Amino acid sequence: MDETGKELVLALYDYQEKSPREVTMKKGDILTLLNSTNKDSWKVEVKITVNGKTYERQGFVPAAYVKKL
């Protein structure tokens, strides 16, 4: 869990989004878990840094590609 009590997951593999509802992640990324009720895909939040500014983006990733921490 992070400092706000949200559950975290670790990306086990790289994943490139295939639709606007998904998010891209790299192996080793730590993501905030938002919903894990679907056995196939979990909703997560990723933090992306562009030019020194951090943005948050929500979307789905394959459940088999992440592990709860």
Rank of each mutant, 00 (worst) to 15 (best):
E7A: 10
Y13D: 06
K6W: 10
E17T: 07
Y65W: 06
G52F: 04
K18H: 07
L34Y: 02
E17D: 03
R21C: 15
A11K: 03
E7C: 15
P20Q: 09
E17W: 06
G52P: 00
V46Q: 13
A11Y: 04
L33M: 02
P20E: 11
F60T: 04
D29P: 00
T24H: 03
K6A: 11
Q58G: 03
Y13G: 05
L10I: 15
N38V: 05
R57C: 08
D29G: 03
K6D: 08
K53D: 09
V23R: 01
W42L: 03
L31S: 01
D14W: 05
Y65M: 15
A63L: 02
K27A: 11
Y65H: 06
V9E: 01
D29V: 05
M25L: 10
V44H: 00
A64N: 13
K43D: 02
K26W: 07
K53E: 12
T54W: 08
E56Q: 14
D29K: 02
L69R: 00
E3T: 13
P20S: 10
D40C: 14
S19L: 07
K53Q: 13
T37H: 10
L33C: 04
K6E: 09
M1A: 13
Q16D: 12
V44N: 00
S41Y: 15
K18E: 07
D14T: 05
V66A: 02
K18I: 06
D2T: 12
V61M: 01
E56Y: 15
T54H: 08
V66N: 01
T37I: 08
P62C: 09
V50H: 09
V46I: 15
R21M: 14
A11D: 01
K53W: 09
A64P: 06
Y15F: 06
Q58M: 07
Q16I: 14
K47Q: 11
L12P: 01
Q16K: 12
Y65D: 04
L31E: 01
T4C: 15
V44A: 00
S41C: 15
T37S: 14
K26T: 08
E45A: 15
G59V: 04
L12T: 03
P20M: 08
E3F: 13
G28Y: 03
T49M: 12
K39A: 12
K18D: 06
K39Q: 11
K26Q: 08
V46A: 08
N35A: 07
Q58P: 02
L31G: 04
L10E: 11
V61F: 02
E3D: 13
D14N: 07
V23W: 03
K26L: 06
L12S: 01
D40H: 13
K6M: 11
T32D: 03
P20R: 08
E17A: 15
N38L: 09
T32N: 06
S36Q: 09
E7N: 10
Y55E: 11
L10R: 08
E56D: 11
E45M: 15
E22C: 08
Y13N: 07
N35K: 05
V46G: 04
L8T: 07
S36A: 11
D2E: 13
T4P: 14
V46N: 04
E22S: 06
A64W: 11
M25K: 02
M25T: 02
L34A: 01
E22G: 15
F60I: 05
T24G: 08
